[in-house]
Write a protein that binds this DNA or RNA. Structure first.
Length: 494
RNA sequence: GGCCCCGUCGUCUAGCGGUUAGGACAUCAGGUUUUCAUCCUGAAGAUCGCGGGUUCGAUUCCCGCCGGGGUCACCA
C-alpha cells in the first residue's frame, strides 16, 4: 500500500475559520494514524482576495492549536515550494499540456460579455447557466494572432458532451454526475494564476496526496477534478467529503452574531486548544462508543473514515464547547491553571493581565483567588468578572441587597451586627475557620436566619448573589476592606 | 431553477433487519452546601420527516413526496 499523504490547503484570505481547523484535524489524524505525512499548502491564487499577513497568521494559529505538519511552509519538504503563488509556471505548463491534448482551449471572452450572456440565459429560463463556448472552435491562426497581440485570455477545460462521472467517496459512497451539468471551467486566469480547480489537482498529484478530505462544499466540483485527472492520465486520490458546520438549530453556516467563527477568536475568548480540539473531533466523527473525552493521541488512535458521519451538517454547539472547556479547565492542576491563564492573558487579552495583578496584589493573594474560582471558570475571558470584587470595591445594588432580608431594619441589624463582630476580631484571628465560627455564633445570638444574614453579607461584600463560599471570600479579604464595604452597604440602606 | 447531499429526544448524535431505540449537552427534581460551581442520584424528553413497497419482521433496504442544506465565478 502506498504511503498515506493528506493535506490541508487553506487560502490566506482572512482569519482561519474554525471549520477549516476541523478539516485540518481530520487530515492530520488520518495521516498520523496511518504513519503517513500531513502536508500544509498555501493556496494563494486569488490576488484580489489576498490579505496581507494572513498566511503567517494561519501558520501561527495552527501551531497554537498544538498541531503541526510534515511538509509545508517553514519546514519545507521534497516538493517545494508549498505556496501556490510560487508555482505559477507549473500550472501554466499543465494547462498548455491540456490544450495540446485537445482537452482545453483559449477563451478571449471579456467579463462584460460573460455577464451579458448569463443575463440572457437567465431571461430565457435556461435551467443552468453555462459558458456558451463561443471560443471553443476558434481558428488556430486566429488564436495565435490574438495571443501574439497580447489579448487578455483564459484557458478553459473542454468538458465532454454527455459523460457519466462517478465520484467514489469514501464517506458518501458512489455519486453520479453528468458532464452535461458541468461548465467549461476556467483553469488558468487572465492574470496567469490558476484557478483552484487546476492548482489543486496539479499540486495534489505532484505532492503525491493519497487522500483528499475536504468539506462537503467541494463535492459539486469533484467531477471537474476527476476529469482533469483523467486528461492528465493520472490516478485518482481517495476522496472523502466532510459535513459542513452549522449553528445550532439554525440550519445556517456559522455566524459571527453567535460568537467567534475564526480559529484564533476562540483562543482569544479563552478556550483551551485541547478543549477546542476535543470538541472539533466530534464535529463529523464519532467513535461509536460513549467516550467523549479525547486527547489528540487517543483521537489519532481511534479515528477512522468509516466513523465519519454521513450528514450534510454538523452542529457547532457552543454550549457543548463551553462544557468541554470548563471540563478541561477544572482538570488542570493549580500550577497549570495559573500558568495557562497567565500565558493566555499575556498573549490575547488586553484587559486583564495576570502579571499586572500580581505586581499590585502579590502572587500569593492572586493564587488564593484563583483557587476559589478555578472550578467556576468556563472560559478564561470570564476571569475579570468572576474575580472583580477581590480587587476593587463592588457596585452594590440596593434593591438586591434589601430583598435578601425581611425588611430594611432587618438588613441594617444584620450589617450592624457583623460590623461589630468583625471590628473586634484581631488580625491574627482573621481566617476562614475563625470567621466562620464567630459569624455563626452571631447568627445564634441574634436569631438571624442563616440564608438572610449570609446572603446580605455576600451582596454587601461582593455585589453578587453567586460567589465562592462566603468565609473563603471573607478570609481572603483584608479586615479593613470588609469593614469598609459593610459600612458602605449600611449607609446605602439607611 | 438545474445538479448533488442529508433527515433519530429541545440540541448534537449512536444505530448499519429483530434493541426496554443508547449516550452527551441543555432542562427539571433530590442529595452535599449559607449562594454559586463541582460532585453524586434520579426524572422528563424520539409513534426514528410523510406515504408506499421488499420482508415473517423495518429506524435500518428500495421508490415517491415533503423539508433542510450545498453548489452552479477569471473565489477558494
Amino acid at each position: 500500500m502506498p504511503q498515506v499523504r493528506t493535506r490541508m490547503a487553506p487560502s490566506p484570505t482572512g482569519e482561519y475559520h474554525i471549520g477549516g481547523m476541523r478539516t485540518l484535524l481530520y487530515n492530520y489524524a488520518f495521516a498520523r494514524k496511518n504513519n503517513g505525512k500531513f502536508i500544509l499548502r498555501i493556496e494563494d491564487t486569488d490576488r484580489e482576495r489576498h490579505v496581507e499577513g494572513a498566511a503567517e497568521r494561519l501558520v501561527r494559529v495552527i501551531k497554537d492549536y498544538g498541531l503541526n505538519w510534515d511538509e509545508g511552509p517553514e519546514v519545507g519538504g521534497p516538493f517545494e515550494p508549498y505556496i501556490q503563488s510560487q508555482r505559477l509556471d507549473i500550472y501554466k505548463k499543465h494547462a498548455l499540456d491540456l490544450i495540446n491534448k485537445g482537452h482545453a482551449y483559449y477563451c478571449f471572452c471579456t467579463e462584460e460579455r460573460l455577464e451579458k450572456m448569463r443575463e440572457e440565459q437567465r431571461k430565457t429560463g435556461l435551467p443552468t447557466t453555462k459558458y456558451d463556448r463561443q471560443c471553443l472552435n476558434l481558428e488556430k491562426d486566429d488564436v495565435e494572432k490574438r495571443l501574439n497581440n497580447g489579448e487578455p485570455h483564459v484557458i478553459r477545460l473542454k468538458v465532454p458532451e454527455n459523460e457519466e462521472i462517478i465520484v467514489k467517496d469514501l464517506i458518501l459512497g458512489e455519486i453520479k454526475f453528468n458532464s452535461q451539468d458541468i461548465d467549461d471551467q476556467v483553469l488558468l486566469k487572465s492574470d496567469g494564476f490558476p484557478t483552484y480547480h487546476l492548482a489543486v489537482v496539479v499540486d495534489d498529484r505532484l505532492m503525491e496526496i493519497s487522500h483528499v478530505l475536504r468539506g462537503l462544499e467541494w463535492l459539486p466540483s469533484t467531477p471537474k477534478h476527476i476529469l482533469l485527472y483523467k486528461y492528465f492520465g493520472w490516478e485518482l486520490p481517495v476522496y472523502g467529503h466532510l459535513p459542513l458546520l452549522k449553528e445550532v438549530g439554525e440550519n445556517k453556516k456559522l455566524s459571527k452574531r453567535m460568537g467567534s467563527v475564526s480559529a484564533q477568536g476562540f483562543l482569544e475568548d479563552g478556550y483551551l486548544p485541547e478543549a477546542l480540539l476535543n470538541f472539533l473531533m466530534f464535529l463529523g466523527w464519532n467513535p461509536g462508543t460513549e467516550k467523549e473525552i479525547y486527547s489528540i493521541e487517543e483521537f489519532i488512535q481511534d479515528f477512522s473514515l468509516e466513523k465519519v458521519q454521513i450528514s450534510d451538517m454538523a452542529s457547532f454547539d457552543r454550549m457543548k464547547l463551553k462544557w468541554y472547556n470548563s471540563y478541561y479547565i477544572r482538570n488542570l492542576s493549580e500550577d497549570d491553571f495559573y500558568n495557562r491563564l497567565t500565558e493566555w492573558s499575556e498573549k490575547y487579552n488586553y484587559d486583564f493581565k495576570v502579571n499586572d495583578y500580581i505586581r499590585k496584589y502579590t502572587k500569593e493573594y492572586f493564587l488564593k483567588v484563583l483557587k476559589l474560582i478555578h472550578e467556576r471558570l468556563q472560559v478564561f475571558s470570564d476571569i475579570k468578572e468572576l474575580t472583580s470584587y477581590f480587587f476593587k470595591d463592588p457596585v452594590v445594588n440596593k434593591d438586591m441587597l434589601l430583598e435578601k432580608s425581611k425588611d430594611r431594619e432587618a438588613a441594617k441589624d444584620i450589617l450592624n451586627s457583623y460590623i461589630n463582630l468583625y471590628s473586634e476580631i484581631i488580625e491574627s484571628d482573621w481566617n476562614k475557620e475563625n470567621l466562620d465560627k464567630r459569624s455563626h455564633e452571631v447568627l445564634l445570638l441574634k436569631g438571624f436566619k442563616t440564608k438572610e444574614a449570609f446572603m446580605t453579607l455576600r451582596i454587601a461584600l461582593t455585589g453578587m448573589e453567586a460567589t465562592p463560599p462566603l468565609f473563603d471570600v471573607l478570609g481572603l479579604m483584608k479586615k479593613e476592606i470588609v469593614l469598609k464595604r459593610l459600612e458602605d452597604a449600611l449607609s446605602l440602606v439607611s
